[in-house]
Write a protein that binds this DNA or RNA. Structure first.
Length: 280
DNA sequence: CAAAAGGGCCGCCACT
DNA sequence: TGAGTGGCGGCCCTTT
């Protein structure tokens, strides 16, 4: 991977020529510059970027999307950028189909991501595409980040792959999220995805980087954490609603994931709440 | 804590 | 010939 960073204002003509031979060009986020305020870009930069699209994959992180948009690369294409810049981005680049709800957008040779953290998600996605989920997972571990985040309903938009012979497990994940409180086993999920169990597990791991059961546990933990933080439901109700069945199972999972018990977790987020029973 | 049972995961391989 | 599929078996972890 060849990355060109900090070349937006090349000192004296050097730098941009690197784009001619790059495989992948990553435009990082900017905090200032004309492109953010009035959407203009040096003509030589724009020209170099446009020329590079013939042979290189071009991606942006955070406000880097302004650079791609200013060069006209994103016209009539879906894209993502930092949520704080949604308004000005739309004003400056009305032709870009900006999606404010996704972590990143994979439109084939053009990839854009939301804020810095989503930039990591995008980079891991690219590594997964190029080198498989094993390498991507190792990279994620090295960076101390989750190999995969769901990020709301629409985790990311993939370019509608031509003759998508490959059905995705994505719809089944959405389906599973709707019924987290019910028993869900591999057979049921595979049936929903209309695949054999073997193919389902293989695809699932390829697409998310984790196994179906691990993914389910992670989602259930998130649900339980939410309920502990935002409701006064008793712990066994939380366990049931999150799909753990018993409070004991929730205890074990939560402890394995973040090292604390449900009640401790709740207390750190709702210190002054709860029934008077626990007064001193 | 022990033991048994039940799932899940994944390498392997034959088969489209 | 090559990629995708899915059944099998063994190991592992979780639950009872």
């Amino acid at each position: 991977v060849t990355t060109t960073a900090g070349l937006l204002q090349p000192p004296s003509g050097d730098g941009l020529e690197a784009l001619e031979s790059a495989d992948t060009i990553v435009v990082p986020s900017l905090r200032s510059g004309a492109v953010l305020t009035d959407g203009t870009l040096g003509p030589d930069v724009a020209k170099a970027l446009i020329a590079a699209t013939g042979h290189a994959r071009v991606m942006s992180i955070c406000t880097g999307a302004f650079v791609l948009a200013a060069a006209g690369l994103l016209d009539d294409r879906p894209a993502a950028t930092h949520w704080g810049y949604t308004g000005s981005f739309r004003r400056l680049f009305p032709r870009v189909r900006l999606d404010p709800d996704v972590l990143f957008v994979d439109d084939g040779e053009l990839l854009t991501s939301a804020g810095g953290g989503a930039g990591i998600d995008l980079c891991l996605h690219v590594v997964r595409r190029d080198h498989g989920s094993k390498v991507a997972n190792r990279a994620a571990r090295a960076c101390v980040v989750a190999p995969w985040r769901e990020g709301g309903q629409s985790q990311f938009i993939e370019r509608p792959v031509p003759q998508a012979s490959t059905a995705s497990t994505g719809p089944t994940r959405a389906w599973a999220l709707e019924r987290l409180d019910q028993p869900l086993d591999l057979a049921a999920m595979a049936r929903h995805a209309r695949m054999s169990v073997r193919t389902f597990t293989r695809r699932f791991r390829g697409e998310t980087g984790v196994s179906p059961a691990q993914w389910l546990i992670q989602r259930r933990i998130e649900r339980a954490e939410y309920l502990l933080e935002n409701t006064d439901l008793p712990v066994d109700r939380v366990a049931a609603d999150a799909g753990f069945g018993t409070a004991a199972a929730l205890r074990v999972r939560l402890h394995a994931a973040i090292g604390v018990s449900p009640s401790t977790y709740r207390r750190t987020f709702r210190p002054s709440e709860g029934p008077a029973a626990d007064s001193r």
